[in-house]
Design a protein around this nucleic acid. Sequence first.
DNA 1: ACAAAAGTGTTGAGTCTACACCCATGA
DNA 2: TCATGGGTGTAGACTCAACACTTTTGT
Lengths: 230, 230
Amino acid sequence: MPYTYDYPRPGLTVDCVVFGLDEQIDLKVLLIQRQIPPFQHQWALPGGFVQMDESLEDAARRELREETGVQGIFLEQLYTFGDLGRDPRDRIISVAYYALINLIEYPLQASTDAEDAAWYSIENLPSLAFDHAQILKQAIRRLQGKVRYEPIGFELLPQKFTLTQIQQLYETVLGHPLDKRNFRKKLLKMDLLIPLDEQQTGVAHRAARLYQFDQSKYELLKQQGFNFEV
Amino acid sequence: MPYTYDYPRPGLTVDCVVFGLDEQIDLKVLLIQRQIPPFQHQWALPGGFVQMDESLEDAARRELREETGVQGIFLEQLYTFGDLGRDPRDRIISVAYYALINLIEYPLQASTDAEDAAWYSIENLPSLAFDHAQILKQAIRRLQGKVRYEPIGFELLPQKFTLTQIQQLYETVLGHPLDKRNFRKKLLKMDLLIPLDEQQTGVAHRAARLYQFDQSKYELLKQQGFNFEV
DNA sequence: ACAAAAGTGTTGAGTCTACACCCATGA
DNA sequence: TCATGGGTGTAGACTCAACACTTTTGT
């Protein structure tokens, strides 16, 4: 530790990787379009400078709200990016956070703060400002890892959903198809889903039963972890 | 993103949680004794301010070398701590790194940089400066998680070791005893260890066979992950 | 000869994978 | 009646946990 605190200081920002699922169980990420240089008009992760009187997570939450209107979500720290040259003008460190939300329940407030916000499918991304492509890639890897030892879905899916929907979510995240019978057996065996006396409506085939998460079981498994090799 | 970079900036430091195993397979952590306020004479994690022309990991590596003499090890980013008030004088963010080493091979250079460095058993820690107790706790949790889906031991154990030693390592990290026969079956089945035509010497009982890691297999499993529920 | 740790095998229960057909519904 | 996805069962392979005794060696 030094004897003084009077060193030149890098700038400190936070960036948010917010994943959302749409009705087609397509995995999307929330981006904003920059209105100012550098990288003017390019798409970027929502984020900005940390103020002196707020924690890192508070800063992430504030920037997300200001730039996209999204608020009230659970953020988890992803990684801190601090290589030289990641911002063309100055030495800037960025602490990245990520979150999972059901995008239907979080309408975007476009053009807040003179920015444009939109959901992009992770299959079809625009070119991103700074090193945000790298940050996003790392967030996707983290999500793929997470899915194997912690339940996901509660944050992403609508409150009532079908088994096929949750299977599609896992297939999307993992990037490969799963066996329907085995997936259901394994999922139901962990006693995490509550079957409802309700069914899908408006489909042109046999209606699927709806389920919801057992919230307390969900939290428990999230803490303890499990093993979901699929 | 803001229109200017001229905000007041928090200070940025790195801290290193270096775990080491001694000959008794006792898990230890590398601490330094602070010679200056705040927290003068208290023990703390090695670390210090990030300079403008070095990456975060380079800074961690430099501070570790300057303060303890330890160098040439693999560091992994742990978490970034940025709550208000974690440093009594100023707003300071710390990016924590952690590492696993075999402490016999990394002799300490005490009193480098006017600091004292020492290994402390994680069972018997002194009171730590700043929020370093919290950082250390998180590092231990991370290690416990890691052990379940990635091989460890290569960095911690001597090059040649017995099955009992690696079992003791797992027992130490996980904090509970393991069944000897099952542990060996599972470990040997993953084809990660190479049995040597050598044995322990100098013990007052039947000498155990020595093993070493198959390095390429080790790296492979580290990337792919595995499942080691024990 | 004894103390101390090394080393080893089996059984029964549970879990995993792979695989194909009938069912209910709306158009 | 047909197209579409919903829903289900089983056999064989494998893996897991639990458990105790014999072997080797140095003192």
